[in-house]
Design a protein around this nucleic acid. Structure first.
Length: 490
RNA sequence: GGCGACGUACCCAAGUGGCUAAGGGAGCGGUCUGCAAAACCGCUAUUCAUCGGUUCGACUCCGAUCGUCGCCUCCA
């Protein structure tokens, strides 16, 4: 398979460092506020990559950090008058909640910066010993000019960057682009003892220390948002490779940002905490189901920006409903279908053969799409193709299905389920709605029968009242061509 | 100003140096239906921002122009 590498600016053949093992690090959140849907785009992207890699037979070790000490967390804690870890823990907890609801599989390890201070100090010391970092008044800085490769990931040269740099007031730095590995503690700040006095880690170093600790000095894939390329990932790479003399991550896979239209200026801009234009993931989940969010987030390519709006979410929901409808219709037909005879395609009718061929081709087409830098949009199109074919097939049958018909539908359903799972959709799409308890079903069946009688007597007002009242409760009735009436939650 | 990405139908969105430019949403017409809903069938890009160039041939490669976005400061 091929994955786009931001380091080389092109797609490269993906070959893991170790045979069957993929080691992956995703830059997690600085837990200063609620996770918003832009954050979750990154993590859901990583989740899809991981699931597909596993589908492909790799064992994946995924590490995703929490940066739980930084200026903004400290500020927020001061405003609230609580310890900084209270703030951090609160948002970490919320992260887990929304992540679980989105069916994002848990990473293998979620290391936290504050729990790795000794590792961080050791790494900084290593850099000082190598002569690429220096201490100045209790701070420690990485000397950018000592690292010849600096700027490669973000495609810029030190000279270019200096032009755009504002004058830095604090001048413990030897070079304006040098960045802090360790910051001397200001009064009343959280701090730890270190060889350079009391202080706390700078922003980038924790990722290097923790990635190396859990994945080794070289690993396969480094993910995160595109806005992290500079300075975060550039600095991470520089300090890591300066320390070890080895490549840090092989593939740098930063994803496109979530954008949103500014209602005042009509301009599209990235969703971020600093612009205060974000939609908390928890709020969106009040309104839209998790699978619809997933459908929305994978509707384009992960490297492209994605524009958020309620209308787009509603569209994603409609896409999801289309698939769900197909599954519902299959389920009605396959109710009590329990037959493990093999499908004899050769002697089947052309319609059966056609659906079978469509479903059978999914594996190859889906893999071709996903092997090409995780093209989820293409992959979804492949699945929609089969859903359409199944719908067409079902519509062609006038509600009478032979066991061969059922076999090919069962086969198609299995294929669709398998591949929707690979993309991380939950069983909620194809499983029966859990709100439908048996008694509910019985009660609705009674109403359906009453309505049926009314319809036979052409008492349309009664029939429609039943349907409308149920509709108001979120229950939709469908009269099928054969005279059968089905119900579903809307 | 520097670096990078992008501009495909009403909307979202994949894609390819030459075979009908995927898929979805929305709309319209039809089938089915007492009416709906859902589904199915048909229609909605002679064209891929604009202008040049390379080529037998480009939407796809190159250049310019216009537009949008991101990074250059904290940010998934």
């Amino acid at each position: 398979m091929y994955i786009y590498n931001n380091l080389s600016n092109r797609k490269e053949r993906f070959i893991p460092c170790e045979d069957n093992q993929v080691k992956m690090y995703v830059c997690g959140m600085t837990v200063q506020d609620k996770p918003h849907i832009g954050h979750m785009k990154s993590f859901l992207t990583a989740d899809v990559m991981r699931r597909y890699l596993e589908y492909r037979g790799y064992r994946v070790k995924l590490v995703q950090n929490f940066t739980d000490v930084d200026d903004k967390i400290i500020n927020r804690a001061n405003q609230e008058g609580v310890p900084y870890l209270t703030v951090a823990n609160r948002y970490i907890e919320e992260y887990y909640q929304v992540s679980d609801r989105l069916n994002i599989r848990r990473a293998d390890i979620y290391p936290r910066a504050t729990e790795h201070i000794p590792d961080i100090i050791a790494l900084i010391q290593r850099l000082i010993d190598k002569g690429v970092a220096y201490e100045a008044a209790g701070d420690v800085y990485f000397a950018v000019e000592k690292h010849p490769d600096y700027g490669k990931l973000s495609n810029r040269s030190i000279a270019d960057m200096i032009e755009g740099t504002r004058k830095d007031v604090q001048s413990n730095k030897k070079h304006p682009l040098d960045f802090a590995l360790w910051k001397a503690a200001k009064p009343d700040e959280p701090h730890w003892d270190s060889p350079w006095g009391k202080g706390r880690p700078g922003w980038h170093i924790e990722c290097s220390a923790m990635a190396m600790k859990y994945l080794g000095e070289t690993f396969d894939i480094h993910g995160g948002g595109l806005d992290l390329i500079f300075p975060h990932h550039e600095n991470e790479r520089a300090q890591s490779e300066a320390a070890t003399g080895k490549p840090f991550a092989h593939f740098w896979c930063e994803g496109g940002l979530l954008e949103i239209e500014n209602t005042a200026t009509k301009k599209v801009e990235k969703m971020s905490k600093s612009l205060n234009n974000f939609f908390a993931m928890s709020d969106i989940l009040e309104k839209f189901e998790p699978d619809a969010v997933r459908m929305f987030l994978i509707s384009g390519h992960y490297r492209s920006p994605l524009n958020f709006s309620e209308a787009r979410m509603a569209e994603a929901k409609a896409r999801l409903d289309r698939l769900r409808e197909t599954f519902r219709n299959m389920s009605f037909i396959l109710k009590d279908f329990d037959d493990d005879a093999t499908l004899d395609v050769e002697s089947s009718e052309p319609e059966v053969k056609e659906l079978y061929e469509k479903a059978k081709a999914v594996r190859e087409k889906f893999e071709a799409a996903m092997d090409d830098d995780f093209n989820t949009a293409q992959a979804m199109a492949v699945l929609f193709d089969v859903a359409k074919a199944a719908n067409t097939f079902m519509a062609s049958r006038q509600e009478r299905f032979s066991s061969t018909d059922k076999r090919v539908l069962d086969y198609s359903r299995g294929i669709l389920q398998d591949f929707l799972h690979v993309l991380g959709f939950s069983d909620a799409i194809f499983a029966e709605d859990t709100r439908a308890t048996d008694i509910t079903d019985d009660l609705i069946q009674i109403l359906i029968e009453v309505r049926k009688t009314a319809r036979m007597e052409k008492q349309w007002a009664i029939a429609d009242t039943i349907r409308n009242r149920l509709e108001a409760l979120g229950i939709a009735l469908e009269d099928r061509p054969g005279g059968e009436t089905r119900w579903k939650w809307k």
